[in-house]
Design a protein around this nucleic acid. Structure first.
Lengths: 242, 242
DNA sequence: TTTTTTTGGTTGTATATACAACCCAGTTTA
DNA sequence: TAAACTGGGTTGTATATACAACCAAAAAAA
């Protein structure tokens, strides 16, 4: 069991523990590469790799000639955490429950045919679920699942394990694409989420891949004004053109 | 001028050129580390760094024991394109115009002090602008700019060139962070964007950096229901837990 | 034929070393 | 006093080397 961790990971953990234990606070210096060499008994390149990766992950920032410092805390893509909604809710001391509205096989909606690389009439799995915090509905989840990638999707019991937790087990996520909109609520949403008149919903569309196969297309609806759900993320791609 | 590029960057460019020139196509192998050592006359560690970074950037993927391969092409964060709103509007055949509401120096709002690493009373540049499509307002842009990074910000003529285009010239973007919300509209927005009663706005907060210096904090407001603005982006972080 | 072993190639981790680039504070010099 | 220099510490880049982990195909054995 317990795969032996590489040594740079141990150094990373060493730093992360120090940060969590408030030993090193925001904008304060963490041990230099050479200090880590002595403290952790590794070579400088290994210590460096640990610091490099933590920098890449946004935990640290480095200034040539001065040192390596704890970066101000950023929420780490809470947009992604939204998915683990059960955990999220429990973490803030509420009780999580859900209601399964629909779980069936049906022919793929035309607007998703190209996404799933299917032909008209081919079937996909479709589920609709309402997630609740202390009994109050806070999210509608509609999901279309690729039956080839997840043949057992319909046979699960989603009382205890949410669809995305199950999916992540059978088809480990390698990529996700999101689209965010504020939308008018349709009648179903209004009733289900107990929205006020004209209250919009914040809609997150998410497409997920496992390697190169598309696993699921998912829409999440939140009452926008009541919860003011926020998603934060970083980009670090080709920003040259902006 | 022309800062000499590090050698690992040359190797990265070598690979990227090969991909662009269709020399290596999707899922095809690129030269191995040892081959790059000979082809580019660098050490293996340098070649490795180039491949590692391109992998991190999503350009390549690696399989231990087999080789390094060209990753399938993905959409490149169109959310970012929203910024070039003038171009966006012209591209869909409409006419772009804008109205400058405010452009001044003022003391930094307290909630931004930590972002800009400033002390109470220090000054920042502040601008508010309305972007219009065929005369109809479609976006309010409020922006706070770091005067150290962009000292000439107040002296520009923003009729012809939008703030973000100007900023991208004087302080090339290296990183951006976004936060997205659906919000109630305040009276100014209601009037300016000609919103209906209770119509929400989609708000995009964006913080941009040039290297390690924060350049600007920007808020973009769109009438959500009328335009149903969408932003799409990719994540490629720790997706293992989902 | 089928299974097992070997072998060569590739990526992954780790170390030791060297020098460049840079920052800052203390020292020297004008 | 003020400017210029210096030195020590830090990060950034680069090389050479070694071995582990892994894969695929070839070779050997059953």
């Amino acid at each position: 069991m317990a795969q032996e961790e590489p040594r740079y990971q141990l150094v990373k953990d060493f730093i992360l523990n120090g940060i969590n234990a408030k030993q090193w606070k925001e904008h304060k210096r963490v041990p230099s590469e050479n200090e880590l060499v002595e403290m952790c008994k590794v070579s400088r390149m290994t210590a460096r790799r640990a610091l490099d990766e933590l920098t890449e992950e946004g935990v640290l920032y480095r200034v040539q000639g001065r040192g390596t410092f704890v970066a101000p805390k950023k929420l780490h893509s809470p947009l992604l955490e939204i998915r683990n909604i059960a955990e999220e809710i429990q973490n803030r001391g509420s009780s999580y429950s859900n209601e399964l509205i629909l779980l069936q096989k049906e022919s793929c909606p035309v607007h998703l045919l190209k996404h799933f690389s299917l032909n008209e009439g081919d079937e996909v799995y479709h589920s609709i679920m309402v997630h609740k915090e202390d009994g109050k509905p806070i999210q509608i989840e509609q999901r279309y699942v690729n039956p080839t990638a997840v043949p057992e999707y319909l046979k699960q019991d989603y009382k205890s394990i949410t669809p995305n937790v199950y999916l992540s087990k059978v088809a480990p996520l390698t990529e996700a694409e999101h689209e965010i909109q504020a939308k008018e609520a349709d009648p179903f949403m209004k009733v289900t989420l107990k929205l006020q008149e004209l209250e919009p919903v914040l809609c997150i569309d998410r497409i997920t891949w496992s390697d190169t196969t598309l696993v699921s297309y998912c829409q999440l609806y939140h009452p926008a004004s009541r919860f003011s759900l926020t998603g934060r993320f970083k980009t670090k791609h080709q920003l040259t053109e902006l």
